[in-house]
Design a binder for these strands. Structure first.
Length: 690
RNA sequence: GGGGCCGUAGCUCAAUUGGUUAGAGUACCGGACUGUCGAUCCGGAUGUUGCGGGUUCGAAUCCCGUCGGCCUCGCCA
């Protein structure tokens, strides 16, 4: 017994012969459009008027799908007035555009349903008789059963299928009974196929989609469209969409407007290197792609938009890392008439919404806050990972008087000695601790003095490393740190900044080596009270910690002349599990303060005018107090999807040398294109000849 | 620009550390098989060991250079 059999009729070459108007229709019949439901083994066609009286029924071999020659039987009227008829061969095809379900949707409850499915051949198992094909689309897999005793023609076609062929089938959902596969969500059922259409054949693949391991990353990117077919990739990009959607819905619901800012804009040599775009109309001049829409969003505030949020592409021509791509996406947001607390509260709401919709997790708000100085002091970094303790502890006063040059000299030079207490660190092998010391040296440190705390039966003893120097203060150290036998103490002498840098490295390494990082923890926190400026030793000048438009704290403005390094700003960073996820600030909305900051940064009034005239102008004409923040959207996706690299969460990313293996971009261009732009190329610097 | 790891069949990886004809799985081709689900079984084809040079009786293996990928420091207001 056959179920209703949905087909559509193609009239090969018909529309061509009719000329090029309305290729999708001919004589009232939709080309490639379904004519209706038909009961196999008979099939019906109809004429242009589609009057039931004109319907012709044709016998159809069970399961036959393509091609069937109806040329001797089917007549179409050219028009109502012209009774001339002409004959066509008709190809019966499964109406893939009328898919009844997606592959991963079918369940036991659907048993008995007639379905039309379409997708990719994930794998096939040919038993000579029965042949099974796993059909895949973005929703999952479903097993197709081709039985020669059921429909021979379909079975014959199934035997020719290869991985990644695109097919559409029609058949019945049947229970798999004792052959159910618990590994598949659709494993309780399968499709008994009546007919299959092979919509597109696949060549042998450069790598397997259904493989357990990944191809090399460069190959993945070269054939990214194949790699993206993998279920894991589909998951990531659907999650990415979910995050973007949650963000848009949140901001829409809270009165923010999404307004686009230009991609072709003005180069600002501060900060990152710009990507440049030559102007044809203005020979010799260049646009820059935006590093961020920072100034434009401030202009929106000055324009009175009050609340703006945009998901926007940004470009920075700097060296790449696992977490840095030359083009990346920011959630950019700005609000007027606000203090820092207001921006942070808005962000907390948005982040809460993201976690809610995408991860189904409730994150508590408000997020804890920590000052930049406290973060550095306790964790050695301004983006602390608070999922585990292992905090830095200051032992400067304890070790000040002992006879150990390595500690004494840095202290006399105004530095500090800090340490990390690794609980159960005695299981670290010499190889591991030596490796840590090497890593510290690798970023400029001198080494990694350490002691092991061991039990003597009556008390504790320091062994190995620098223990002999520390014996005099052994008990006081143990008391202050709470050290116990089995622990290892890592010391670090030096300037405050150096000690932070090295111990932060050691801390993060130890956390992973000692498995201190709890799973499924999402520790969000705000880092606040950043210094407004930092001294740049190389250039002998003050640099902005955040950017030049960040407002100093009101109470610190007076310090700007006397002690700029002490001035704190109204900046805030959002940190998740030790990664900086967003950074923002309250902006300067008063022209005199903006100029004061420029002058502190060594930007002359003339230079400021040349670079930022439009902003300074805007500040002249009634700028409201405002502030905002920018999220690294890619990083959020990376963190929430559990990826190790930004490349995994960007559809078509660049390699470390900023090349797209898929398109080959960037490429040289024709001389004529250069001529149009009045550009001449210099040869790249040649290699020194031997 | 610096440091590190890597490059062997279409793909993922071996090759007893310098030794005979560079192997396996998968994909591909042919065959068998009516309940598989990483199907199985039988057979077949598949290599500029990234490229160039050097050392050696002999190089995938050692050395130099180079290209490419990844990690990282610098850089990323």
């Amino acid at each position: 017994m056959f179920h209703p059999f949905r087909v559509f009729v193609r009239l090969p070459g018909f529309h061509k012969r009719m000329g090029n108007e309305n290729p999708g229709r001919c004589h009232g019949l939709n080309y490639d459009a379904p004519l209706g439901l038909f009961d196999a083994p008979a099939i019906q066609t109809c004429d242009q008027s589609r009057r039931p009286a004109d319907t012709v029924t044709h016998p159809l071999e069970a399961g036959d799908a393509t091609p069937i020659d109806f040329s001797s039987r089917v007549a179409y009227k050219r028009s109502q007035t012209n009774r001339n008829t002409h004959k066509r061969s008709i190809v019966l095809a499964i109406a893939y555009n009328q898919r009844t379900h997606r592959c991963g949707e079918l369940r036991r409850a659907d048993e008995g349903k007639a379905v039309i499915l379409a997708g990719w051949v994930n794998s096939s198992r040919d038993h000579g008789g029965l042949t099974f094909v796993d059909l895949r689309d973005h929703t999952g897999l479903v097993q197709l059963r081709f039985n020669p005793d059921h429909v021979k023609a379909a079975h014959e076609q199934a035997k020719t299928l290869h991985n990644e062929d695109v097919i559409t089938v029609t058949g019945t959902v049947v229970s798999r009974g004792e052959w159910a596969n618990p590994k598949l969500s659709t494993g309780e059922i399968e499709i008994e196929v009546d007919a299959v259409d092979i919509l597109s054949r696949s060549d042998p693949l450069p790598f397997q989609i259904n493989d357990e391991f990944d191809a090399g990353e460069e190959l993945q990117l070269r054939y990214r469209f194949l790699h993206l077919r993998r279920p894991e990739m589909q998951r990531i990009f659907r999650m990415r969409h979910g995050i973007a959607r949650a963000i848009r819905e949140y901001f829409h619901a809270n009165g923010f407007a999404e307004i686009e800012t230009p991609c072709l804009t003005k180069s600002t040599p501060e900060g990152a290197r710009d990507y440049l775009v030559p102007s044809r109309v203005q020979p010799g001049s260049f646009f820059a792609l935006p590093q961020s829409p920072q100034i434009f969003k401030q202009l929106f505030m000055i324009a009175g938009f009050d609340r703006y949020a945009q998901i926007v592409r940004c470009f920075r021509d700097e060296d790449l890392r696992a977490d840095r791509q030359p083009e990346f996406t920011q959630l950019d947001m700005e609000m007027a008439f606000v203090q820092a607390d207001d921006v942070m509260a808005e962000v907390e709401g948005c982040v809460q919404r993201i976690f809610n919709t995408v991860m189904n997790i409730d994150v508590p708000v408000p997020f804890p806050r920590i000052s930049e100085h406290e973060a550095m002091n306790r964790f050695g970094v301004d983006r602390p990972d608070t999922r585990y303790d292992l905090e830095l502890q200051d032992v400067t006063d304890l070790v000040r008087d002992i006879d150990f040059r390595v500690f004494r000299e840095p202290i006399e030079a105004g530095g500090v000695v800090k340490c990390l207490l690794a609980r159960g660190g005695d299981k670290l092998t010499r190889k591991v601790t030596d490796g840590l010391a090497e890593e510290v040296k690798g970023i400029g440190g001198g080494g990694l003095p350490l002691v092991k705390v061991t039990s003597t039966g009556t008390g504790v003893e320091f062994t190995t490393g620098v223990s002999k120097y520390l014996q005099p203060i052994r008990d006081r150290i143990c008391e202050q740190l709470g050290a116990e036998p089995g622990d290892v103490i890592f010391f670090m002498p030096g300037t405050f900044a150096d000690v932070c840098k090295y111990l932060h490295l050691v801390r993060t390494r130890l956390a992973s080596i000692l498995s201190l990082i709890p799973k499924d923890r999402w520790n969000l926190l705000w880092v606040v009270d950043f210094p407004l400026v930092m001294w740049n030793e190389d250039e002998q000048r003050w640099d902005s910690t955040h950017h030049p438009f960040t407002a100093p704290r009101d109470e610190d403005i007076a310090l700007m002349d006397s002690d700029p390094g002490k001035v704190l700003s109204k900046a805030y960073d959002l940190v998740l599990n030790g990664t900086e996820m967003a950074g923002g600030s309250i902006r300067i909305h008063q022209r005199d303060i903006q100029q004061k900051v420029f002058s502190l940064l060594g930007i002359s009034p003339e230079e400021a005018l040349r670079k930022f005239e439009f902003l300074l102008d805007a500040l002249r004409f009634g700028a409201p107090p405002h502030g905002g923040i920018a999220f690294g959207l890619d990083r959020w996706v990376m963190m929430l999807a559990g990826c190790d690299s930004l490349r995994e969460v960007i559809a078509f990313p660049k390699t470390q040398r900023a090349i797209c293996p898929l398109t080959g971009a960037p490429t040289p261009v024709a001389q004529s294109q250069l001529d149009e732009l009045f550009l001449a190329l210099k040869p790249p610097p040649g290699k020194a000849k031997p």
